[in-house]
Design a protein around this nucleic acid. Sequence first.
DNA 1: CATGAATGAGGGTTCATTCAT
DNA 2: TATGAATGAACCCTCATTCAT
Lengths: 229, 229, 229, 229
Amino acid sequence: MTDQSVSSTMWPTSNLRNFMSLAVSNLAPGKRLQQKEARRNDIIEAALAEFASQGFTATKLDDVAVRAGIGKGTIYLYFNSKESLFEEVVRCTLFPGREMAESYVEDFEGTATELMVNHFRFIYGFFQNEKVPLLLAIVLAEAARFPQLAQFFFDEMIRPSRQLIQDIIERGIASGEFRASASLIHHQLLISPAVLAAIFNLQFHQQEPIDFAVYSEMHIDFILRGLKA
Amino acid sequence: MTDQSVSSTMWPTSNLRNFMSLAVSNLAPGKRLQQKEARRNDIIEAALAEFASQGFTATKLDDVAVRAGIGKGTIYLYFNSKESLFEEVVRCTLFPGREMAESYVEDFEGTATELMVNHFRFIYGFFQNEKVPLLLAIVLAEAARFPQLAQFFFDEMIRPSRQLIQDIIERGIASGEFRASASLIHHQLLISPAVLAAIFNLQFHQQEPIDFAVYSEMHIDFILRGLKA
Amino acid sequence: MTDQSVSSTMWPTSNLRNFMSLAVSNLAPGKRLQQKEARRNDIIEAALAEFASQGFTATKLDDVAVRAGIGKGTIYLYFNSKESLFEEVVRCTLFPGREMAESYVEDFEGTATELMVNHFRFIYGFFQNEKVPLLLAIVLAEAARFPQLAQFFFDEMIRPSRQLIQDIIERGIASGEFRASASLIHHQLLISPAVLAAIFNLQFHQQEPIDFAVYSEMHIDFILRGLKA
Amino acid sequence: MTDQSVSSTMWPTSNLRNFMSLAVSNLAPGKRLQQKEARRNDIIEAALAEFASQGFTATKLDDVAVRAGIGKGTIYLYFNSKESLFEEVVRCTLFPGREMAESYVEDFEGTATELMVNHFRFIYGFFQNEKVPLLLAIVLAEAARFPQLAQFFFDEMIRPSRQLIQDIIERGIASGEFRASASLIHHQLLISPAVLAAIFNLQFHQQEPIDFAVYSEMHIDFILRGLKA
DNA sequence: CATGAATGAGGGTTCATTCAT
DNA sequence: TATGAATGAACCCTCATTCAT
């Protein structure tokens, strides 16, 4: 195996599922505001579930309302439209992962190899939350007709994700762990197998589920083989 | 470098665009049947264009009919529903690529390395047809709501695609070109970067188009690094 | 009385009600087209009834469809929106009157006084069709929020109406029947009592209906007093 | 000319704009009641502005509340429904004009001609307040669907208005200024040009605004010609 | 008294599907 | 066989009205 040296600092993937609720429920000034915030979260959570199972267009706001246990019109007290609700769902679901990854990479002090390994383990952990790949699939499929969403997704998710990986690669090149030509590698080369596997696992799990534990380690091993000096 | 040794037998990517029309216009018994077949193809081609640019739900059968130059009701003489039309479109668009790839791999007589290189060059050539990645994106996003389509897609596209790659890998292991442990590699590890890059190139080409010529060679190089003995 | 000299050529007000149907049912090429045309008229007639009794905003297209004996969606085969349907209703209801008046004035060969008298008798006859004043009231009330309609109404109804009256006045001045300063008179000064009386008669007929026969002659007499040399 | 003899006692049109506020702020028993009354006026004023610019149906109570600087629910502490609020707005906007006109006519001691002239000058001054004609237009258009409003409007505005004009006419006949047959003249004959001109000026001012100063004097002149002995 | 969050019926509009011609 | 007019269910969104705080 190539990933021998991988060490200590593992990602606590177990609590990834609580990202969203943690992220939104800040301290609230008054009781009224607190409730409003809670209600807003209810809607986002219900919408997430509906979008994930129905796709964007096929999702009915009625169903979102029913699932959230509120009236149909209430949604419009919190969001301007179905589309902006979807954007919020994407934001709330995907942002926490990005932020955690960013701060982890920044603070990490081990070797680049270790960091790369841990970063991808984190990614796989994040994708375990089945909503994430579903949203990714929806965005990938419908981005063309929602330019605003496409821009937002590119700026806030794709670009930062690329930056992280490039940073890690640069660090590895500087330390002599990775080959110099690795700086040219497009980050999609590295991350695509994780994204697609997550999506496939959802959409085709009836046909043939992928064993993420095995798949992810093989992927990481493959990456290290491709990068090593 | 790993990618220099690639040789001779290149794919004639230039005529990839004609796949579909070729694939569908099979021999027809009588003249009447021939016309029916032609009409059916017109519809599929028109539907492909619409599905590709609008997505599944947003595509209107009116527009398909207009583009095909026929009446709206005529579509229902050839297809039972919008959904089954979509399935046919997927089938007709993706099958030819599979079949060409299969016969190519079967007949190839060079090294496994060469074959792998050419196979992926073919895949990238096939994905150049911009309809293909869009259909993939749609299938990936909506598979959950079209179980029949998901099953068909898995059986007819994913499984054969995996088989091909595994065959090539086995051949390379047998010849000593690839490491023995490569037989365990999931084919998605190898193919995902091509699929996702194609989709990204469509949905985010406004943000940052990928140079396929560069990307594909880098991808192939990366694969060979990961597989080599 | 001032209107003594009024003579012969009276307006056949009795058939004013048939304007619309006459105006639209042109000869139709094929049977299919004929039916489409008929259906279109059905919708306009139903819409006229609904708009007249409910006003623009309060009119439900469901009700229009029910009254026309068709499905709700059918309306959109003939009109782009509720607003454009309303425009068509206005056009079909008010145009015939304008055109008849124009050709009558042009062809008339008697004195200006006679012409003025007959013109206003025609106007009162036209307003007997109770739909007309109702549409006028709606336009007057909602024009501000439908600029397109306002423009159309001004160009096609108000301006031509003014032109007719000014023509008659000029003719009377030339013949010495009317005072020279009458050329400065705004046409609204002359026509407003007819318009408002028609509207009042509809909206307040429960309170105190106006006897049009008496009112119109008094109005005409008043006009002649104000114009005479 | 007929309009030169108009004399002295002109209407102080300058302060017509303050009618409304004056009219509503009656003396209030206690301080609490005074505040309630003030709040009520705020709502009416805000509603007037909204109704005038949006029409009845298009006016949103949210906007009224925002404009009044109060909560949305508060409106229902003062009015039973949107409709009754509208009635109150009409009442408060149109009443003051009626009352001022009535007392002016009653107290006037000059000739009937002078009185008629001044009365119409007052009317035109009153209509300068752009809210008035808009409310008139709305009432005219929607009276059929608000029978209660129609009745109120007829009793409180139309009938008194007619009475005033008939009084002036009678006075003129008695003094020999007006022809005897003038007693039969319907008051709408005289007042319609003012009403419609005001409405037209609002709804079609983009197309062709009417110069009220000129128009009103021509109208008055026309009336005197029609009435004179 | 005052608030404003919550409601849910209802409207305009779309579009897959049907069927008479 | 082919058509395209007709349908009507469904969806997003609005807003007058209510009521717990």
